[in-house]
Nucleic acid binder design. Structure first.
Length: 426
RNA sequence: GGAGAAUUGUCCGAGUGGCUUAAGGAGCACGCUUGGAAAGCGUGUAUACGGUUUUCCGUAUCGAGGGUUCGAAUCCCUCAUUCUCCUCCA
């Protein structure tokens, strides 16, 4: 949520910046008109309420003195009705203001490239070189199926397409990876380990920005006000929903493994095979609560934390700075990490690290009390994947495949695999 | 799932329709007092929105949302959470 006062006071500049994210100018003009209307009604209503409070005090006084107050009561009856009518209009208007305001994306950070889509993204850096093979590398779904460690057919049978069973060393590999990731974050990167709820209510989803605009992207529980989380960012960020933190306690770092459930509406036909695009996948998430002045340093650190995992696993990747048009709804600035996927001969997103500044904090009412003057202000929230586990399995299988279709296990994972050094057909 | 109790400010806690503008206490901040400290005394101590602007003024907020009333912390309804007991269960 953007600050309505900021939109009001810096109207033209805000309009222009949101324009780079595809927000129509008319939408802001509409918002401005609604806001002016709203403030007018607030003043009307509050004047009447002031009047009512004063007269009510008089009535109380008269009653105590056993005097007659019928005239005043009759007059206030009318005023009461008037207030009710104005407040009803006001409520309607506020709903409209909120509906427009809640649908506006975050303001893009000045450092990010302006552009309509991913064409304008910038490659910031690259680590490693695309893996070279002296044979034709297989896609991970073929490797996984022939090794008997990934079973997509039965996943579709039991749930539907885009679900799978991991079996045997496949399941173990997934578990090894997320344990490795969590251990790294809690021992070397100072995150606190969390196990969050995997269902969240509407307030939480509103807080992080999924609701009201992106309801189609999630699975909601029938007859319950609960939704399967599309990312652990939702419960982790909302951990401090409606709370005021002390400045000395910032920054706070949380990490959690969770399944992520996504309906993938509108992506029919894209990445239909393999582990790249599923309705349910595991992800280790990182979330930070930071002071505004530190949040961009924290974003760099968080991105490095995610990179650290890829480096230790020896997976080649590049870091992409997203353009205004490609940046997600809640984010002011986002780095994507893209890992090399040999069979597709391309880099694919495996992590996304964002600073949402006070956009989510404003929605979820997460604030902190400043040491200097004791005043309360919104803090900044950040989130990043560290990493998407399923896609890491895919990248690892493809980059570490050997000519005979077996898969080598990287050094750092061997202890997590109980000493297993490679996965081969038995 | 069933029965009962509770939810008031940073914390404790009073408050069953109007002298409550939420008593009282604790904590915290500042000041007075002191050689210094403690005690004591005094002053202050929320958030949001609107108006004004570097001061103020107003409105709202007593778990959340509705209702009754000229007027609600207080009465009514719905919901949430917590606790106790029963039931069930990993």
């Amino acid at each position: 949520m953007l600050d309505i006062k900021r939109i009001r006071n810096d109207f033209e500049a805000t309009k222009e910046r949101l324009g780079t994210r595809g927000v129509a100018a008319e939408e802001l003009d509409h918002l401005k008109a609604l806001d002016e209307n709203r403030r007018e009604l607030i003043q009307k209503s509050e004047h009447l309420k002031k009047h009512r409070n004063e007269v009510s005090a008089d009535i109380a006084e008269k009653k105590r003195n056993k005097e007659d107050a019928q005239d005043a009561i009759a007059a206030m009856k009318k005023v009461g009705a008037e207030i009710k009518a104005i407040d009803a209009d006001l409520e309607l208007l506020e709903e409209q203001v909120n509906a427009v305001a809640a649908g506006l994306p975050n303001l893009p950070h000045p450092s990010i490239p302006v552009g309509a889509d991913e064409e304008s993204n910038i490659e910031v850096r690259k680590w490693g070189k695309p893996t070279e093979f002296d044979f034709e590398p297989q896609p991970h779904w073929d490797l996984g199926t022939s090794l008997g460690i990934l079973d997509f057919e039965r996943g579709a049978k039991v749930a539907r397409s885009r679900f799978l069973f991991y079996r045997g060393l496949g399941a173990r590999l997934e578990r090894a990876l997320y344990n490795f990731m969590l251990d790294l974050h809690i021992t070397e990167h100072d995150y606190e380990e969390i196990i969050p709820p995997y269902l969240a209510n509407d307030d939480a989803l509103y807080g992080t920005g999924q609701f009201p605009k992106f309801k189609e992207d999630v699975f909601q529980i029938k007859n319950q006000p609960l939704t399967l989380i599309p990312t652990a960012e939702v419960p982790l960020t909302n951990f401090y929903q409606n709370e005021i933190l002390e400045e000395k306690d910032l920054p706070k770092y949380f990490t959690a493994l969770s399944p992520s459930f996504r309906s993938e509406a509108g992506s029919a036909g894209r990445d239909t095979r393999g582990l790249i695009r599923l309705h349910q996948f595991n992800k280790v998430e990182m979330v930070k609560f930071a002071k505004p002045e530190d949040s961009y340093d924290e974003l760099e650190k968080m991105t490095n934390n995610a990179e650290d995992i890829l480096q230790k696993l020896g997976l080649p990747y590049r870091v992409i700075l997203l353009s205004t048009g490609d940046t997600g709804f809640a984010a002011a600035k986002t780095y994507d990490l893209e890992v090399w996927i040999p069979a597709q001969n391309t880099y694919r997103e495996i992590s996304s690290c964002s600073n949402t500044e006070d956009f989510q904090a404003r929605r979820a009412m997460i604030r902190y009390r400043k040491e200097s003057d004791g005043k309360v202000d919104y803090l900044h929230t950040l989130n990043g994947s560290g990493l998407a586990v399923g896609r890491t399995v895919a990248a690892l299988m493809e980059n570490y495949q050997q000519k005979d279709g077996s898969i080598k296990i990287p050094e750092v994972l061997v202890p997590y695999m109980g000493g297993v050094k490679e996965i081969r057909r038995t």
